[in-house]
Simulated scan of single mutants.
Amino acid sequence: MSIVERIEGDGDVLILCDHASNHVPADIDLGIDPALLDRHIAIDIGAAAVSRGLAARLGAPAVLATVSRLVIDLNRETDALGLIPHASDGHAIPGNDGADRAERIARFHAPYHRTIAAQVRTQRPALIVSVHSFTPALESGIAAPRPWEAGILYNRDARAARLAVDWLAAQGIVTGDNEPYSGRLLNATMNRHAEATGTPYLGIEIRNDLISSDAGVTMWCEILGNLVTFVRNPLAQGRPAAT
């Protein structure tokens, strides 16, 4: 199985989805109840469908991961503690206790990021859009329920993020500004392929109960298509967004 799913397109936006799949290769035993692979700990529920739909709507190329975040989290630096999780939202992942870290990086993490880097070099996108989803409430109960419908994450480069937060809020969408968690702490893919190359980006989080159905995916593809167009145009032209 390929490490990535690639969608071809000739648009100037690049769409990425780090947690698109709950696939666990047959030679890896996580030691968990298979039912957990359908939970948010294994996959960003709805994110792959939104990424594919958004790519189709924009005519944009896309790169989607094809391995579960429980095997390796592709949105983490290779030296991050949570790169190969031993527990997630209160669930132990005992099969990862003896995992060969270097082997998983070489097998999954490195080729995924090489693919993205090559796409960025070739395409030189005007905007990179990273699509994620989040659970309304953690099962472990260590945090309060999350009221946001969507969140925009960013680290140092907030050019696109500030436009997006204001636009979403103006549509009546309850929007988190670096919520449900901060892009200053968890932003590895965007740090590497957007901030490091000077490319504007949107780190988008959608509450997963809103994109768990075909109707929800369709609605959010329309919302995000309009958002991306609004954000991309002024950035590409080097001027502030119209109000």
Rank of each mutant, 00 (worst) to 15 (best):
S2F: 06
I7N: 06
I7D: 05
D10R: 14
D12I: 11
D12A: 13
D12S: 11
H19R: 07
A20R: 04
P25E: 07
P25L: 09
I28H: 02
L30D: 00
L30R: 01
D33W: 05
R39K: 06
I43K: 15
D44I: 14
I45W: 00
I45Y: 00
A47Q: 06
A48V: 05
A48D: 12
V50P: 03
G53P: 03
L54D: 08
R57L: 09
L58N: 10
G59T: 14
G59V: 13
P61V: 12
P61Y: 13
A62M: 07
A62G: 10
V63C: 11
T66V: 01
T66M: 04
S68W: 02
L70Q: 01
V71R: 11
I72K: 01
L74K: 14
N75Q: 09
T78H: 04
T78N: 02
A80L: 12
A87I: 03
D89E: 11
H91E: 15
A92R: 13
A92D: 15
P94D: 07
P94K: 03
G98C: 05
G98W: 00
A99K: 08
D100P: 04
R101M: 07
A102L: 13
R104Q: 08
F108H: 12
Y112V: 09
H113C: 10
I116G: 05
Q119S: 05
V120R: 00
R121W: 06
T122M: 09
Q123P: 07
S133Y: 06
L138C: 09
E139L: 14
I142V: 15
A143Y: 09
A144E: 05
W148V: 12
G151Y: 12
G151T: 10
G151Q: 06
R156D: 09
R159K: 06
R159D: 09
R162K: 13
L163R: 12
L163W: 07
A164Q: 08
A164Y: 01
W167S: 03
L168N: 09
A169Y: 00
A170G: 13
A170W: 00
Q171L: 15
G172W: 15
G176Y: 13
P180Q: 00
Y181N: 04
S182G: 14
L185R: 14
N187G: 04
A188V: 05
M190A: 05
R192Y: 08
R192D: 10
T199G: 00
P200G: 09
L202E: 04
L202V: 12
I204F: 06
E205R: 04
R207H: 04
N208Y: 02
D209I: 13
I211N: 10
A215Q: 12
V217F: 03
V217H: 13
T218V: 12
C221A: 03
C221Q: 12
E222V: 13
I223V: 14
I223F: 01
G225I: 09
N226S: 14
F230Y: 11
V231L: 01
V231Q: 05
N233P: 00
N233I: 11
P234G: 08
L235T: 14
L235C: 10
Q237S: 08
G238F: 15
A241C: 02
A241G: 11
A242Y: 06
T243M: 02
T243F: 01
T243L: 08
